[in-house]
């Protein structure tokens, strides 16, 4: 690992200023479970590491009926997976958090870190896509703004964030009833593995929403499949047909973990199983 400067700013202004000052050579340190590994492996060489854990107010989970659920940037996956509000109203997200890495990793890792990495297989991305979440971003000029999660992911390891931007949290709208449906992760091994394909198939406000990971350059929402399901009752034929549309809607690749063809198979299975669960 190369030498670097370590900063622990106590305000967003200060953090943003440092980010602008170092530009591309700066990295935000949050849980560190990705950054430190990448630095050790020589994949990242930041000149400045800016630790945002000294900034107050980023480690809270808050809820009100108007705005919904807000999860601060520094909230760990461990805190999320056992949070009563998440478990009750947004269970799919708690399940996705629980599927990440090991207990040790989840004690440090954050959801905001997970999505800002913009891995196509980020476990927490698909529930956020399914739930129409908003990413809250601070920039020194404009203060806090919200970006729709649907605009957030741009490409493999690339988000729409600009220099100086700091994600302060994620907001999920309030839904009158609890989100129904589960997070599904298909991986080579049940524990401590990356998703070969992951899926959030949920029912919110009477609508079915489907988001998949590891099937395209970014995690994706399956709009066509959802449109097909609109207004239909979930009988076996409809489910079968929806699974087929889902397979056609994604574009996975072959890599070291699985072939494109196998991923397509699994997309069909996870969508089918997700819908069957909802139809129960």
């Amino acid at each position: 690992m190369k030498d670097f400067k370590y900063f622990k700013p106590s305000s967003l202004e200060e953090a943003s200023r440092l980010l602008l000052q170092y530009g591309e050579a700066a990295s935000i340190l949050n849980g560190g479970t990705d950054l430190i590994v990448r630095m050790h492996e020589g994949l990242s060489h930041p000149e400045a590491v800016i630790d945002i854990k000294g900034i107050g107010g980023l480690n809270e989970i808050t809820f009100d009926k108007e705005t919904g659920l807000t999860i601060g940037a520094c909230v760990t996956m461990k805190e999320m997976e056992k949070h009563p509000m998440l478990l009750e109203k947004y269970r799919v997200l708690a399940e996705a958090c629980h599927s990440v890495g090991s207990c040790q990793v989840r004690n440090r890792a954050t959801m905001v870190g997970n999505i800002t990495n913009a891995s196509p297989l980020a476990d927490t991305a698909t529930p956020l896509l399914a739930l129409d979440a908003f990413v809250q971003v601070y920039a020194s000029e404009e203060g806090i703004r919200e970006i729709s999660i649907h605009d957030f992911f741009v490409y493999v390891r690339k988000t729409c964030l600009k220099a100086g931007d700091i994600v302060t949290g994620v907001r999920i709208p309030n839904y009158d009833e609890n989100v129904f449906g589960h997070y599904q992760k298909h991986a080579r091994r049940d524990a401590v593995d990356l998703s070969t394909v992951c899926a959030s198939v949920v029912k919110v406000g009477g609508k079915i929403r489907i988001a998949l990971g590891s099937v395209a350059p970014t995690p994706v929402r399956l709009w066509q499949t959802e449109a097909f399901l609109e207004g239909k009752s979930l009988n076996p034929e409809v489910i079968e047909a929806a699974a087929k549309i889902a397979v056609g809607e994604v574009n996975p690749i072959t890599d070291i973990r699985a072939t494109k063809e196998y991923r397509q198979e699994i997309v069909g299975v996870l969508v089918k199983r997700g819908l069957e669960e909802i139809a129960k």
Binding site: R188, R189, D190, A191, V192, D193, L194, I256, R257
Partner: peptide
């Protein structure tokens, strides 16, 4: 069920525990 050094023209493609899996207590 898990283990294989994936070799491509003499290069080990998975020299790490991310892509070379061994059983955990869960297995």
């Amino acid at each position: 069920i898990f283990e294989e050094l994936i070799l491509d023209n003499g290069v080990v493609k998975n020299p790490n525990f991310v892509d070379y899996k061994i059983p955990t207590s869960d297995d």
